[in-house]
Design a binder for these strands. Structure first.
Length: 419
DNA sequence: TAGGCCATCTGGTCCT
DNA sequence: AGGACCAGATGGCCTA
C-alpha cells in the first residue's frame, strides 16, 4: 500500500469515524505510513524484503539442500538491504556495533538537549521521536528475526513429527502415499470414534460399518486408500453385509483393528523409543512385538461386562461435523473425556509408581485418572500395582489390550495437538 | 496448467 | 525482554 493510498484510507476512515484496519486506528495508519517512509523504502514483506531471499527460498532449500537447524541462510551473507553500505557486511564486528550504538545514543541525547534534530529549540515530542535505522540496529533486528525463524522452523518440525507419529498410529499407513495433515487428523478422529464404538458395542461389528466410520469426512482418495489398505473396496452406498459373511476368518479383524506398527513394526517404531508415545509398553507387555491381541478376546470380555459407556449426544453424532460437539461414543469410568469434559487433573494423588495419572480410572484409587496421557503404560502400572483384586485385574488386564490401543491413538492425537 | 499440499518467512499477540 | 503461538503471504513441488 502506497503512502498516498494509506493517507487516503486514513482520512476516509477518520471522516467515517471508523478504523480502516481492524485494531488499527486511522491515526495509527498515518503514523505507520510515516514510519514506512522513514525506513526509506525497506519493505519487510514481499519479494523485496531484506528478510527473505529473493525468489526460491522455501522448499528448495529444505528438500534439495537440507538446511542445518539454526544455520545461517545462504541469502543472509550476500543480500544487503536496500541502500545499505556494503562495507558493513565485510566488517561484522561487535565492537563496531557497540561503537555505532554509542554514537547513535549520544546523537539522540544531543538532539534531545538541543530540542530536536533541527535545533529549533522547541521541546521535542517524545512520542513522535523516531529512532533512525542504523546498521547495528538493523543487524540486531535481523538477527532476532533469524533466531525467531529458526525457532518457528523447529516448532513446525516438532509438529510434523507428532503428525508422523499419528500417521503410524492410525490404520492405513501407506508407504507410497503419505496422508496429508488434515486427512491424518480426520482419520485419527474417525479411528478413535470407530474403536470407541467397538468397545461400547461389546460385540463384533460390521467390518464395512467400521470402515465407513473410518472414512467419514475423508476425501475420496483418502477413503479409497483406507479401504484399500484394509482390503476393502470403497463403496459409498449399498447393503452392508455382515463381516462374517464378507470376510470370514479373524485375520481380517486383526487387519482392521490393528494399527500398522503392531502388525509389522511392533517395537521398532517411534512408540518403541519410549517416552510419551506410549506404544512400547503395549508391545513389550504383550510379548515384545507380538501382533496385537485378537479382537475377539476383548470383545468377549466386554460383552460380559456391565455397560460402561454413555453414548455421545445425538445433536452431532457424525464425525463429519467438523468442529462440532464430537466425542467418541465412549465414556468409560472417566478414561475417555475428549471434548465434553476435557482433561482433568488428578484428584490429589499419583498412581502407585509415581506416574502422574490423568484421564483414566485407576483401580487402586477409583478416581485416579490415567492412561490417555501416557498411553496404556500408566494404566497398566496402576493395575499391576494392586495385588488385592486378582480377578478384577485379570479381566481388566485382558480388556486393557483393546483399551491400550484406543488410548494410544488418543495419545497420539493429543500429542499432535499439544505440539 | 490449475489446484492441493507443504515449508518457510514474517509480524502480531500473548504469556512468563 | 524473550519465547511460544498463530495466521497470512509466498513460492516450490507434485499430480490430475
Amino acid at each position: 500500500m502506497s503512502l498516498q493510498e494509506m493517507v487516503f484510507l486514513s482520512v476516509s476512515a477518520a471522516l467515517d469515524g471508523s478504523s480502516v484496519t481492524p485494531g488499527l486506528k486511522a491515526s495509527d495508519m498515518l503514523t505507520s505510513a510515516l514510519a514506512e517512509r522513514t525506513l526509506e523504502s525497506t519493505p519487510t514483506r514481499g519479494p523485496d524484503s531484506p528478510f527473505r531471499p529473493s525468489g526460491a527460498h522455501c522448499k528448495v532449500s529444505t528438500k534439495s539442500q537440507p538446511r542445518e537447524p539454526g544455520g545461517r541462510p545462504e541469502w543472509l551473507g550476500h543480500t544487503p538491504g536496500p541502500g545499505r553500505d556494503r562495507q558493513h557486511d565485510r566488517v561484522p564486528d561487535g565492537a563496531r556495533e557497540a561503537e555505532e550504538e554509542e554514537e547513535e545514543e549520544q546523537e539522540e541525547e544531543q538532539e534531545e538537549e538541543d530540542g530536536g534534530p533541527e535545533g529549533d529549540g522547541l521541546p521535542r515530542r517524545r512520542g513522535l521521536r523516531r529512532r533512525r535505522v542504523t546498521q547495528a540496529r538493523w543487524d540486531r533486528v535481523r538477527l532476532r528475526r533469524i533466531e525467531a525463524n529458526t525457532r518457528e522452523r523447529n516448532r513446525m518440525h516438532g509438529l510434523n513429527h507428532a503428525l508422523d507419529a499419528l500417521r503410524r498410529a492410525v490404520p492405513c499407513p501407506s508407504r507410497t502415499q503419505k496422508l496429508s495433515k488434515i486427512e491424518t487428523l480426520r482419520l485419527a478422529r474417525n479411528y478413535i470414534w470407530a474403536l470407541s464404538e467397538v468397545l461400547s458395542a461389546g460385540k463384533r461389528p460390521d467390518l464395512l460399518a467400521f470402515v465407513q466410520t473410518l472414512c467419514r469426512g475423508l476425501s475420496q482418495p483418502t477413503a479409497s486408500l483406507v479401504a484399500g489398505c484394509l482390503q476393502l473396496s470403497a463403496r459409498p452406498s449399498g447393503p452392508e453385509p455382515r463381516v462374517e459373511a464378507a470376510f470370514p476368518g479373524r485375520a481380517t479383524f486383526d487387519t482392521v483393528y490393528t494399527p500398522y506398527r503392531f502388525r509389522h513394526d511392533a517395537g521398532t517404531g517411534p512408540c518403541a523409543s519410549g517416552g510419551h508415545e506410549g506404544g512400547s509398553s503395549v508391545s513389550s507387555a504383550e510379548g515384545g512385538g507380538r501382533p496385537f491381541p485378537a479382537y475377539s478376546a476383548f470383545c468377549g470380555l466386554a460383552a460380559t461386562y456391565q455397560p460402561f459407556y454413555e453414548r455421545a449426544s445425538p445433536e452431532c453424532s457424525s464425525p463429519t461435523c467438523d468442529g462440532g460437539a464430537l466425542s467418541p461414543p465412549l465414556h468409560y469410568h472417566g478414561i475417555f473425556s475428549l471434548k465434553h469434559e476435557g482433561p482433568s487433573e488428578p484428584e490429589g494423588h499419583s498412581d502407585p509408581d509415581g506416574t502422574r495419572c490423568r484421564f483414566g480410572t485407576c483401580r487402586r484409587f477409583g478416581t485416579c485418572r490415567c492412561a490417555a496421557a501416557s498411553g496404556g503404560a500408566a494404566l497398566r502400572r496402576c493395575a499391576a500395582a494392586d495385588a488385592h483384586v486378582p480377578y478384577d485385574v485379570q479381566l481388566r488386564e485382558q480388556f486393557l489390550t483393546a483399551q491400550d490401543q484406543l488410548n494410544i491413538v488418543q495419545d497420539q492425537f493429543y500429542t499432535a495437538f499439544q505440539q
